[in-house]
Simulated assay, not measured.
Amino acid sequence: MAYTGLSFGNPVFAAYAAYSSLVLLKMFVLAGYTTYTRFRVGVFANPEDVKGNKGAVARLDNPDVERVRRLHRNDLENIPAFLAVGLLYVLTGPSPGVALWHFRIFTAARCFHTVSYLAAVQPLRTLCYTAGLLATISMTLQVLMAGAL
């Protein structure tokens, strides 16, 4: 029987922790990129943020800033779901190889989604989004099956 504890002695949990950390780090970097973009184009969301930034304006309609914000929002809609269901999935005692592929697919899909979103590349962006979503749905279904009475 596979060890299913929430410890780094469990290879599935260790992989989950590593890939979760990668997507969280990616999300934090994107938050920083939003700030960088605001300073680069001189557009801020709040009037008080304009103070001390010569030539800056408070607007919510700059296309560069809004693209990064939409991307960040997309991460905020998808990554927490992966984190929650991934942890429950670890508790089902999945095959380490299968679990690793779920985590890899989600992480790679989110990274490529970020690049394709920033570069405005379709249909790659949709394909990446869908791949990540399918990995999460697959884990969700396995959690449901394991938890069914």
Rank of each mutant, 00 (worst) to 15 (best):
E48R: 14
Q142T: 09
Y16W: 14
H102L: 06
N62P: 06
G52P: 13
R125M: 06
V85A: 02
M145K: 13
L149T: 12
T136A: 14
L22H: 00
Y16F: 15
V85S: 02
E66Y: 05
L133P: 00
V85L: 07
Y36R: 07
T92G: 00
F82T: 00
Y129T: 01
A148D: 08
P47W: 10
A56T: 09
H102D: 06
A99E: 01
T4H: 02
P94S: 04
S138Q: 09
C128K: 05
S20D: 05
T136V: 13
T130N: 01
E77T: 01
V68R: 07
V65A: 03
G32R: 13
A58M: 08
G93N: 02
P80A: 10
L127H: 14
L87P: 00
L88E: 04
Y117V: 11
K54D: 15
E77F: 04
L71S: 13
T136C: 12
G86S: 06
M27Q: 13
V68A: 14
A15H: 05
G86I: 07
I79P: 02
R73K: 12
A84I: 15
Y117I: 09
S95G: 09
V98L: 11
T140S: 15
E48G: 09
T92R: 02
N10Y: 07
A120S: 12
L141P: 00
R40P: 01
N53P: 09
R125G: 00
F103M: 14
T136M: 11
S21R: 02
H113S: 01
R70H: 10
V85R: 02
A109G: 10
L25E: 01
G93S: 04
V143K: 03
N62I: 10
Y19Q: 11
V143L: 06
Y89N: 03
R73V: 13
Y89G: 02
V29S: 06
G93I: 02
Y117E: 07
Y36V: 04
L141I: 11
K51I: 15
D61C: 11
L127E: 08
R59N: 08
F44V: 10
A120V: 13
N62G: 07
S7Q: 09
G5V: 08
T130E: 00
S21Q: 08
A14C: 03
K51T: 15
L133K: 05
V23M: 05
R40K: 14
S21A: 15
V65K: 04
Q142V: 08
S20Y: 07
V29A: 14
L83D: 10
L6D: 07
L134Y: 03
Y19F: 15
V41R: 05
R125V: 04
